[in-house]
Amino acid sequence: MNPDQMSVDAVIDAVSAVFMVVGALMSLGAAIGLLRFPDLMSRMHAATKPQVLGLFLLLCAVGLQLRTWWVWPVLVVAWIFQLLTVPVSAHMVGRAGYRTKHLHPELLSADELEAVVQQAAGEHGFTDDK
């Protein structure tokens, strides 16, 4: 093995090591956010980090370590699948959290759903303020 290829190998190893450590730190950031943030909405903000960016960095590390081209489509499919499912579940959880009043209204800077909810409650003849 010539020295040039060895240095390329070392660079790829270093990049994937950095990706792995940063991806693990995303999980730690999410855990700290879960413990420190005051309500459900801000915790959801913290929880997205390892699910999207952390998984991206770690799948990139896997692809760099395997050093073949055919794994990249598989890893991209895994990541896109995560990208498709995470917003849907976050939307459902956020909607349920809004409906069951798991939020601190004084922490919101804008509440665009309030008027819609009030209008829908008026049309259906019941109020949702229990």
Partner: peptide, 12 residues
């Protein structure tokens, strides 16, 4: 997600 991260690191 943390479990998935651990699996990814094992693979890498």
């Amino acid at each position: 997600a943390i479990l998935g991260a651990a699996l990814c690191i094992d693979m890498a």
